[in-house]
Amino acid sequence: MKNNQNNSKSFEEYLKELENIVSEMESGNIPLDKALEMYERGINISQYCIKELEKAELKLKKLSKKIDGSFEVEDID
């Protein structure tokens, strides 16, 4: 999956898409060429999601409100 797609879709949305592909394939009413396309897409998403989960490291931040009412989010370790 390309990088520019990562930003546009969240992990959850990819999982949702995968679920949809599986249930649509399950219904069995898709022409073969479309089914093959969906199969390939499903496998790609699966691999992407597993990779994302395995490489992820928890991001820990601190929220504070400044005097002017704006928010500041800074990393903490």
Binding site: E19, I21, M25, G28, A35, G42, I43, S46, C49, I50
Partner: peptide, 16 residues
């Protein structure tokens, strides 16, 4: 989640 994804992959393979 990973287990689920793996079962999805299996389902996809089964259906195709």
């Amino acid at each position: 989640i990973i287990e689920n994804i793996i079962s999805y992959i299996n389902s996809l393979y089964y259906y195709i």
